[in-house]
Design a protein around this nucleic acid. Structure first.
Lengths: 354, 354
DNA sequence: CTGAAAGCGCTTACAG
DNA sequence: CTGAAAGCGCTTACAG
């Protein structure tokens, strides 16, 4: 491949002049510019990104470490991150942690070794040494979706509390009283927050949430299956199950179907995170939808702010309930809250088109 | 961040010795090694990947350009690629083309500018200048899933012809005679091959495939919806629709549901590419499953072979039919081919567990 | 076994 | 407006 020296030789100028032309430096004669440009075209020259990065100490690259690419929520998040990053002149390298802290740390280290300009993190676990090192070393960092309390870094996330209250109101109105939750890992913020929100919402209706109805999952389908089987084995099984993410809901569906039970007749099901397939499952699944694309874009903007020396603020966006048929009854399209006592919920409840 | 000079100073040796220790060069005294290692630990030193790459002309990075990350098939492919690459000591940078040739070319160029060691390509379209440049410039390249005829590069892909024959046999046995296909772009190999395979399979049963029953899609859900609406508007609508990928099947499901029709009673549906959600859709969708993980791993191995100077061969793996309920009748779990005349199909038909 | 030196391909003050 | 020179942080023949 041609180097800047080749271009300089062909154009009859110095490498410095070639560099100036390529970087749109103002003080270059029209003549020099023309000759450089045609030499570039003739040689098919493309600047060596690695050399450029070494010299400028900038890679124009963002690192994104997510917990699980196979989770459609994170796939969509990654996609919107890449889109916004591209618009701002960055490329992004995705590290998939597969919900494994060791893999997450591997990716963080690899990304730092590559000297990415900034790091977008959705911690698979609590604080880890490489992550704290990155923050400590002053690498611009932003948490997205999940975060680590006590680490002074902007957080871009959705607040699902109001939507969870709407969900519980919906379940209550449909007659469900023994509600259960398939939780994510307690070491993740989304894992613990969703349980807390659920518990608080139940409390508002005077409903208990005994430990037997809190199943410990890990955001993966298999754990949803396992936990649901446990629920169904209970002397008094729950009449409604809330899965803290879409994959665990898939696992729950597997387990329920394997027992020959039906949703929602035998047991109601709802999920955190909405995905296109929930419209076509049997039955369509009631879910809490995050503004995923907006989260990704806001996270990139916050990170770019930090990288480019501007102050970056945390962003919290609301999630919303999307009612379908998996909790019972057909949604009534005319009235938004028909029959649902909403003790503390001003959040709009969107009903999906049937 | 500490540099190799800092480590050298702390350890009381030269940078060359530090480098030798870090790269496991044999001729280093035990004493020097110890002092370097403790200096590294004390300073928290991590080698500057960019500098190292510039010097060694290796980035230990693979570029993967896929057509659409949001397509679960490609998500899984990307995941297996990353996994195998990591096992072989490479990281991977994913470029999502979103089925847009311009975006694909942008990613190819960006990846080449970063001097990735090798390129894994699933062309969104026919040949493009940047792609041919890459191959021409001698950048190790492997096609995965889709490829470009006439370009001398190893291809790792699945052959779905036998599975398509099985599908047509299945549809025929269930009484369907007016079969239709939602095709992918003719400029992609997977787009055209699946139509060809379908047409040939129909011919074996003496069934016609008029142009009106070949809908032009683009592998995205919206096109599946649009094409299906066209099918349903036909004076004589098809009684079975085969979507050439899972997203177009999702769109077809949308369109069918919007008309108030039912699958499979009013119209049968099958898809190329199997995904976990197909088990839980209403009804569960009969699909052709690719050995996605194997494809990703084989592609990485082929690319690593090329990069490391070994000969790399193309790999073709078989796809297989997974029968569910979307084409009619409940699958008979006892007999694998019950009632299905199979004129030319030795491929095993796997039935999914109900 | 070890270090000084060159060089990977750029960019950017500095001097003219 | 332009070029020679230095230097980003490494690795690696070369000489000792």
């Amino acid at each position: 491949m041609a180097s800047i020296k080749d271009v300089a030789a062909t154009a009859g100028v110095s490498a410095a002049t070639v560099s100036r032309v390529l970087n749109a430096h103002p003080s270059v004669s029209e003549d020099a510019r023309t000759r450089v440009l045609s030499a570039v075209a003739a040689l098919g020259y493309r600047p060596h990104g690695v050399a450029r990065s070494l010299r400028t100490a900038q890679t124009h690259t963002l690192g994104l470490v997510i917990s699980d690419v196979l989770n459609p929520y994170f796939t969509e998040l990654a996609r919107s991150v890449e889109e916004e990053a591209r618009a701002l002149g960055y490329s992004v390298i995705i590290g998939n942690a597969d919900e494994r802290p060791d893999l997450q740390d591997h990716h963080v280290r690899t990304l730092l070794d590559r000297r990415i300009d900034g790091l977008l993190l959705s911690p698979a676990d609590g604080a880890s040494a490489p992550m704290l090192d990155a923050v400590g070393a002053g690498v611009p960092t932003v948490f997205v979706d999940r975060w680590i309390p006590g680490v002074d870094v902007p957080v871009v996330r959705a607040d699902g509390r109001a939507a969870v209250r709407d969900l519980v109101a919906h379940l209550y109105a449909l007659g469900h009283r023994r509600l259960a939750i398939i939780a994510g890992p307690g070491s993740t913020t989304t894992g613990s927050e969703r349980v807390t929100a659920f518990r608080e919402a139940l409390a508002a209706y005077g409903l208990p949430l005994p430990d037997t109805r809190i199943g410990q999952g890990d955001f993966q389908a298999a754990s949803g299956r396992r936990v649901t089987e446990g629920f169904l084995d209970l002397p008094e099984p729950p009449d409604a199950v809330f899965a803290a993410d879409n994959l665990m809901a898939l696992g729950a569906l597997d387990a329920i179907r394997a027992r020959g039970l039906r949703v929602p007749d035998d047991i109601a099901l709802a999920a955190f995170d909405d995905i296109p397939w929930f419209v076509h499952t049997d039955p369509p699944v009631t879910a809490i939808a995050q503004p995923t694309g907006e989260l990704g874009r806001a996270a990139v903007r916050a990170l770019a702010d930090r990288i480019e020396g501007r102050p970056a603020a945390s962003v919290t966006l609301p999630a919303r309930l999307v009612v379908r048929r998996s909790c019972g009854a057909a949604p009534a399209p005319t009235s938004r809250t028909s029959g649902i006592p909403a003790p503390a919920s001003p959040t709009p409840v969107r009903r999906s088109t049937p």
